[in-house]
């Protein structure tokens, strides 16, 4: 354990010394995973409410909600009523149930997939009834959605992450999930990506988003942000 932590620390320091951002990771071949709901999106089922990456929402809360993930939104948020069934995005085995160190309460679940990547399902309403190492199949119901504010009337949603096996890195789910992301965005988030006016074209599309290294410095503490770090802009 100490050896592994030391190895991660060394690799972390090496990465920090070389480049401030982690290279985005994409799986070989076609995106291996599916969307985490059985039903189609819509006003009575689910819709994307926050994309992955340098979102406006994440920027506003970069030191509060997202400080551990370099200030970025390190997953995709799917708005859904409390109790909506969530399905596994790929075959794999249960890695962790209710791991508070990864946030996204009140309950979460992590699946280690056969390709070595991990999916994290956050803000689940109930503790999933799985023991670690249980096999799950793609499309199998693994839990139901909840609300991080515990009311089911504030912001019930599923927070879905794709991580590497070490769990130290989160990647853009757009590269991993086989979905029509541009069409999903049509009934999607109301705000877009945050800009740094010193490099106004960076991180402005669904695909062009950096990977996140948990515990590393903020990537979006921009000196010339647009919109400004005040409400109503």
């Amino acid at each position: 354990m100490i050896k592994r932590a030391a190895a991660i620390l060394v690799s972390t320091l090496a990465i920090l010394a070389v480049t401030p951002t982690v290279l985005a990771q994409t799986p070989p071949g076609d995106p291996p995973f599916r969307l985490p709901f059985a039903e189609n999106p819509g006003p009575s089922t689910w819709y994307i409410v926050q994309h992955y990456g340098s979102t406006r929402t994440a920027y506003v809360r970069r030191t509060v909600w997202y400080g551990s993930g370099q200030g970025l939104h390190f997953g995709v948020d799917f708005s859904a009523r409390c109790g909506t069934e969530v399905v596994a995005i790929g075959d794999g085995s249960i890695l962790k149930v209710d791991a508070p160190e990864h946030g996204a309460g009140p309950h979460n679940l992590l699946i280690l997939h056969d390709n070595g990547f991990v999916s994290l399902y956050g803000h689940l309403r109930d503790r999933p009834r799985f023991a670690p190492f249980t096999r799950v199949e793609q499309g199998q119901v693994i839990g139901v959605t909840g609300d991080p504010d515990l009311t089911c009337s504030s912001r019930p949603h599923l927070h879905l992450e794709i991580r590497d096996r070490s769990l130290f890195y989160a990647y853009n789910p757009v590269d991993f999930i086989d979905a029509d992301w541009d069409s999903l965005a049509l009934f999607g988030p109301s705000s877009g990506f945050q800009r740094d006016l010193s490099d106004p074209g960076r991180w402005q599309t669904l695909h062009d988003q950096p990977a996140v290294q948990f515990g590393a410095p903020l990537l979006n503490d921009f000196r010339t942000p647009w919109p400004p770090d005040r409400s109503g802009w």
Binding site: D149, T151, S153, R155, P227, P228, R230, S231, G232, W233
Partner: peptide, 25 residues
């Protein structure tokens, strides 16, 4: 420092002050 919304006739502006804690509803 908050953003403003211009009325279509360009006679007025409006802005909002919101609390930032508690449930969104």
């Amino acid at each position: 420092g908050r953003g403003v919304l211009f009325s279509p006739d360009m006679q007025r502006i409006a802005w909002s002050i919101s609390t930032i804690s508690g449930g969104f509803d």
